[in-house]
Write a protein that binds this DNA or RNA. Structure first.
Length: 596
RNA sequence: GCCACCGUAGCUCAGAUGGCAGAGCAGUCGCUUCGUAAGCGACGGGUCAAGGGUUCGAUUCCCUUCGGUGGCUCCA
């Protein structure tokens, strides 16, 4: 959620309802476990959570009885009473609540909020009491529990969460719940969850035979099947063409490189924990590449570069390997081996602003071509804990990126301290068909590599000058992009990307010959076509084609053979009736060209 | 990696307080030749994730490992 949206949310009634529901839930939990310790319980985007330290793991039966108890507390319609305390009074009150004591210390020092984030002003210490339950809390809440709609709350799941998000601290039990103003809203939200589950790319990947992950090969390593491979190829083909038009040149580089390369690049200093262990080859250490940059840099260095050569734009669909902790792997979205649509731009300082504008523009156009319309940009700035180079060095590129965003006129927010070690970056996120946000493009300024590799170009003055380097991936990784595409379209890819665009459905065996004849014509016209000649009834063939989300189902029976036509049914279930093969080709080609 | 839960046929899932392993779908074969979302029948298919322990006997109980799911931390 954007910071401005978050602010509006925090002012809303819904925010109070959810915050209050979290307290009611905490009361129910503490009634169940009187010795339980409470941590924090804030509202979140679609609901709320509360973290607890409890004597035993919670079960789904516990959630049911907690939910029941919450409804009783709500029915009691008790007041939320606010009271402001001195730190010492608060400490006495929460003497047996170690997490609250830590929070009180943070508040008293005026330093930190409940997440451990620094605060600008020293806040007052307040408690809210409802029924017998007292909680350290800054509010706000509804006036009394009766203002929470008991028909619009639901406890969703239990998960582990570190106290203050720190993996060195204890693991708490987090209960996620949701609360809405009306039962209808709740129902709609649950429908959305169900819809998201149905379009889960892992499920569709199997049902549509797009890809798989084999236990034999290893977790986070994707096997693309022919249908998924076709979609991926179409995506790549389109992008390659656009890149050529956009002035990029294609390069290819190997999957491994010597340790010294990664020392020079800085990856072994800054990125080692994400890299696979080295291979020993003839006494030399080689690392699997986690990024493509050093290779492109070596291509740049392979000869003397003149100011006339720049900008150079090296593009590569580069497959990289990163060690991701087992718990973070997720279908195509988070994997250990993936292919970036990567490019590195080497530019003269005077070309830099225009080049960044171009990249941002290029990126938006490509994403639009795939049906994404809603973008959100994030500008990540220097993290002093984890940054190569000085603060001064970061200033100019950070400004350049900010200016590009201003000129592109897209909504963005600044994420302070979120940059990678080598430079500030812009991340572009898209909203999919059901409103979820996914990160795809990244445009990263890199001022460290040109220095580390001592990159130069010869200027007009005959002297060596340092080029700037911009690192960018537009789709991000092919794996993640495909995952987002699958979920965005719920597997019903736009016709130009559909692995099978038309299926011919002969009603009886005697129609096979004509079906193959039509398939031949369509194939020659570039339509990806299959003939379903199983001994199934037409109804079954239609059902299967529908489930495979094939855009055009062409039914062929006696009438069509007679009239040399096809009967066109769409996956929208619309039946267009009979038309000639030529008419169908006009229709299909139009829709393919329009990317619908 | 951490916390919780889970792992039975390609998929979705039954099952037994520890005693020869079950269904639907999918697959193969046969019959059917059908007009816009599932025709009928037969057959094949399993070291019950792997390894170890307890036991007369383990798919079932215990331990370890591997894999998955939801989160946390991290991220393209």
């Amino acid at each position: 959620m954007l910071k401005e949206q978050q602010k509006i949310y925090e002012e809303s009634d819904l925010y109070r309802i959810r915050h209050s529901a979290a307290h009611v839930m905490a009361q129910a939990v503490i009634e169940m476990f009187p010795d339980g310790k409470v941590a924090i319980g804030p509202p979140i985007e679609d609901g709320f959570y509360y973290d607890f330290d409890l004597p035993r793991p919670l079960t789904s039966e516990d959630l049911e009885s907690l939910e029941k108890r919450m409804r009783e507390i709500i029915a009691g319609d008790v007041k939320f009473n606010k009271q402001v305390l001195q730190a010492d009074e608060a400490r006495q009150l929460f003497a047996d609540q170690p997490y609250k004591l830590e929070l009180i210390d943070g508040l008293e020092q005026g330093g930190f909020d409940e997440y451990g984030e620094p605060l600008e002003e020293k806040p007052e210490i307040s408690i809210y009491t409802q029924d017998q339950f007292v909680d350290l809390c800054r509010g706000p809440h509804v006036a009394n529990t009766g203002m929470i709609n008991p028909e619009a709350i639901k406890l969703l799941s239990v998960a582990g969460a570190y106290w203050r998000g720190d993996e060195q601290r204890p693991m708490l039990q987090r209960i996620y719940g949701t609360a809405w103003e009306s039962a209808d809203d709740l129902e709609q939200y649950l429908w959305k969850l169900e819809e998201a589950r149905k379009r889960d790319h892992r499920r569709l990947g199997r049902d549509l035979d797009l890809f798989s992950v084999s236990e034999e090969v290893g977790p986070g390593l994707i096997l693309w099947h022919p249908k998924g491979g076709m979609v991926r190829k179409l995506v790549e083909d389109y992008c390659r063409e656009e890149h050529e038009i956009g002035g990029y040149e294609f390069v290819y580089s190997p999957h491994i490189g010597k340790a010294h390369l990664w020392e020079t690049s800085g990856h072994l200093d800054w990125y080692k924990e994400s890299m696979y262990s080295p291979l020993d080859i003839e006494g030399q250490e080689y690392y699997l590449k986690p990024m493509n940059c050093p290779f492109h840099v070596e291509i740049y260095k392979s000869r003397t570069r003149s100011y006339r050569d720049l900008p150079l734009r090296y593009a590569e669909w580069g497959t990289v390997y990163r060690y991701e902790r087992s718990g973070v792997l997720h279908g195509l979205m988070r994997v250990r081996g993936f292919t970036q649509d990567d490019a590195h731009l080497f530019v003269r300082p005077d070309q830099m602003p225009e080049e960044i504008d171009r990249v941002l523009d290029f990126s938006l156009n490509i994403l639009r071509a795939f049906g994404f319309k809603d973008f959100q940009a994030y500008l990540s700035t220097r993290n002093p804990e984890k940054a190569a180079g000085s603060a001064e060095q970061w200033e100019a590129p950070t400004e350049a990126l900010r200016n590009a965003l201003e000129r592109a006129e897209i909504a963005y927010q600044v994420d302070e301290g979120e940059a990678t070690f080598y430079g500030p970056k812009i991340d572009l996120k898209v909203h999919d068909a059901i409103g979820r946000e996914w990160q795809l493009s990244t445009i990263q300024f890199d001022f460290t590599l040109p220095e580390r590799f001592d990159l130069v170009f010869v200027g007009e003055d005959g002297q060596d000058h340092r080029p700037y380097m911009i690192h960018r991936a537009l789709l991000g990784s092919m794996e993640r992009f495909m995952g987002v595409l699958i979920e965005h379209f719920a597997g019903a890819f736009p016709i130009w990307l559909a692995p099978v665009q038309a299926v011919l459905i002969p009603i009886a065996d005697r129609h096979f010959d004509y079906a193959h004849k039509v398939a031949g014509i369509l194939g020659e016209a570039g339509i990806r076509t299959e003939v379903d000649q199983r001994g199934e009834r037409m109804n079954a063939k239609i059902r299967d084609a529908q489930n495979q989300k094939i855009p055009y189902m062409l039914v062929i029976g006696d009438r069509e053979v007679e009239a040399e036509s096809v009967s066109v049914r769409l996956r929208s279930e619309e039946n267009l009736g009979a038309m000639s093969v030529d008419e169908f080709l006009v229709l299909a080609n139009k829709e393919i060209a329009e990317h619908v």
